[in-house]
Each structure stands twice: as structure tokens, then as C-alpha cells.
Design a protein around this nucleic acid. Structure first.
Lengths: 109, 109
DNA sequence: ATATTATATCGCAATATTACGATTGTTATT
DNA sequence: AATAACAATCGTAATATTGCGATATAATAT
């Protein structure tokens, strides 16, 4: 027990859940917003801006990276991060499709 | 440690994260898809369809309910669930706003 | 009243997540 | 070569999540 039974769900359901999971933390939302806002790569400025320890931010960045949402390039002594456009589009499509599948037409409960 | 430092983030960031968190499990995606598909209230049919124990499903329903995504009405001996249109719309708006804030214009990394 | 059916809650074990100090690499500067 | 700056990883503690059996609750049916 204590471990998600992914094998009983469809790939689609597991994919959607994992995408939502990557977004399911305010620090990761904040990081993404910060990257988007600066409209370019962001190199190292995150630590100190967010109020979390360096190790913690690095861990969140790793999660965003392994979900494919961001990509990083080594730029001298620091690392630059930016949105991965391809995965972001996928995210928009999949999540939009999922949310859009509900047409709030029939009144019930 | 081990507890999310919500106080250092904005209400917006915490709201988004909590909505995403409610969606960050394949069972809860499956439940929502099932409710949406039947296009009406769904009463009790979930147990047996999903392959999870009744207690587990009840727990996931509770999480979806406390996130406001679904609402339940007692219908005799069983309970009927349906999407909460208001919160679903909010989710669509917030998510669209968040995802749409990235215009993949500038090539960087 | 008792039994039946459907759902919620409790209690527990296993696993995952969050956070951070300390350490380790890696590159640039002196 | 030594130092500085930055980021990743390790190790660990605290907390949260997941799953389920057992039990409790609530409404209907007999």
C-alpha cells in the first residue's frame, strides 16, 4: 500500500495525472511564472527571490525538468532555464482537451 | 520541514497548486472522466469499475469534493456526484490564463 | 425491528513529498 | 594552483499521500 496503482489506469490518465502533479506545488508555479515573465532564459536568479533554500529550489527545478516542462543549458558558471515549447504545447492541448470535455449543459445535482 | 511553505507564495499560486493537486492522481482523473462521460450525476457505479477498494474511492471523492471540483447529493441510499460547474469554469479560466501567459516567441535555450 | 445496501470514517502500513544543511562537482577568476 | 561562485546531489527529518480492511453511519426494504 501507499503506492499509486498506475497499472490499473490508462496511459492517458497516468499522463494527465503526472502533468498535473508537476504543477501541483506553489513553488513550481512561481518558478514557471518567473521564467515566463522574464521572456527569456533565467540564470540562477531564482534563489533569493523565492525564499526557499538553494537545495529546495534545485529539487523543484529537477522535477520540472524531468516532467519536460523546462529545459536547462549550462551558461558558464550558472545554468539557464526556459520553458520547453514542445511540452508546453502538449500540456495546453491535453489539459485543454480534458477540461473542455465537460460541457456544463445538463443541470443535475 | 516536510511541509509546504504556503505563506511565502501568493494566494493565486497556492490556489492554482491546490487545484492541480486535486487532479494529480490517475484515479481522480478517471473518476472525473467517468462523471463527465455519463453527462449526468453518477451514483455509486464507481466502485467495481475502477479496480480500487471502496474506501479508497470514497477518499478520492472526498478530495475532489473538498477541492470543490465535484458536488454530491444524497439520493436515497446512495450518493450522486456531478461536476461543480462554477469551480470547473474557474479552473478552466485560471489554467488557460496560466498556460496562455507563455507565448513561445523568443528562442533561447 | 431486522436485514440490506451504499457510503463514510478510522486506523494502520507503505511509500512519496517537502525542506534544508552539508557536501560535492564544475566552471571562471585570480 | 588556489579561490570563488553556482548548482546538483546526499542524507535526513517532518509531513503528506495512497491504499485497504474493519467498522460506523444512514436510508431503504422486508
Amino acid at each position: 500500500m501507499g503506492l499509486t496503482r498506475t497499472e490499473i489506469f490508462t496511459d492517458e490518465q497516468n499522463l494527465l495525472a503526472s502533468l498535473f502533479k508537476a504543477l501541483a506545488h506553489p513553488a513550481r508555479i512561481a518558478i514557471l511564472q518567473r521564467i515566463i515573465l522574464s521572456n527569456t532564459c533565467i540564470c540562477g536568479d531564482l534563489v533569493g527571490e523565492l525564499g526557499l533554500a538553494q537545495a529546495t529550489i534545485s529539487q523543484h527545478l529537477k522535477e520540472l525538468k524531468s516532467a519536460g516542462l523546462i529545459q536547462g543549458t549550462i551558461e558558464g558558471v550558472s545554468v539557464c532555464y526556459c520553458i520547453n515549447p514542445k511540452v508546453w504545447k502538449l500540456l495546453e492541448n491535453k489539459l485543454g482537451e480534458f477540461l473542455g470535455s465537460y460541457k456544463g449543459t445538463t443541470e443535475c445535482c
